[in-house]
């Protein structure tokens, strides 16, 4: 009986080592593909950077006035943005190659699944970046306009706008990635509906006097200075 147990263990070990040995070339191929793609990406980005500098790309974009990239993103120059995009596209392509090699060694349908999911992750990252940029822009717009309209709670409004966009973005990203889709839909619906209802109740009941006092004060405050001081 001990011999049979010994035999079963040996066979199991043999199978496990065989499996690891089959997987190893795939893992190595994935790592090599990633490293090579990072190197090629870096090389291509450097080449593109020097070409764009030679063509005075930044100055041309600035002069054409087609896009005000710095208004919307943290990228300092259009060249920086273009080289970063090229670099990451090369790295992602390398990753696909590596996964395909890994998949071939594994002889399973992993590659197709991972590739499909990676494309979702890339789209989700893009949504997150856009969401953050839009949230920052809207938050500043609401804050500055609120201050210039003499709203005492401009900062609160600005924070509200920022978090509304961020929460909305998070819900979109989770939904896109297919993570707890039902809970996200339900949770977001409840949260969003709750916020709107709370605001309506707050303004309608709790802050009725405050709002009317504020409007009254604004009505009495503005006209005299406008009659005497003329800015242009």
């Amino acid at each position: 009986m001990w011999e049979q147990v010994h035999q079963a263990l040996l066979e199991s070990l043999h199978r496990a080592v065989f499996k690891v040995a089959t997987l190893l070339p795939g893992v190595l191929a994935l790592i090599v593909a990633l490293l090579v793609s990072i190197f090629i990406g870096w090389l291509l980005a450097a080449l593109l950077r020097s070409i764009l500098h030679a063509l005075r790309f930044d100055a041309r974009v600035e002069k054409s006035g087609l896009v005000n990239i710095s208004d919307w993103s943290s990228a300092k120059t259009p060249t920086f943005l273009a080289t970063r995009i090229l670099f990451w596209m090369t790295v992602i392509a390398g990753l696909f190659v590596g996964i395909a090699a890994f998949d071939a060694s594994l002889s399973s349908g992993l590659s197709a699944y991972v590739v499909a999911y990676i494309s979702r992750i890339v789209a989700a990252v893009v949504v997150v970046v856009i969401g953050i940029v839009v949230a920052r822009f809207l938050s500043r717009s609401v804050l500055i306009n609120g201050v210039n309209m003499n709203l005492e709670h401009a900062r609160l409004l600005s924070l509200g706008a920022k978090w509304l966009v961020l929460v909305f973005t998070a819900a979109m990203v989770l939904d896109h990635l297919g993570i707890a889709r039902g809970i996200v839909d339900l949770g977001f619906g409840i949260l969003f509906g709750g916020i709107v209802l709370a605001l309506a109740l707050a303004v309608g009941l709790g802050s009725r006097d405050l709002v009317s006092r504020s409007l009254e004060r604004d009505r009495h405050k503005m006209p005299p200075e406008e009659e005497v001081v003329r800015h242009f």
Binding site: L143, N150, R155, E225, V228, V229
Partner: peptide, 25 residues
């Protein structure tokens, strides 16, 4: 010339409001 004096309080309040809220910007 008009001899009116200007009520500066609304403008000073606008400045104070800006100082409180726009410091980060």
């Amino acid at each position: 010339e008009t001899t009116d004096t200007v009520d500066v309080r609304p403008m000073v309040e606008a400045f104070h409001l800006g100082e409180r809220n726009l410091r980060e910007i």
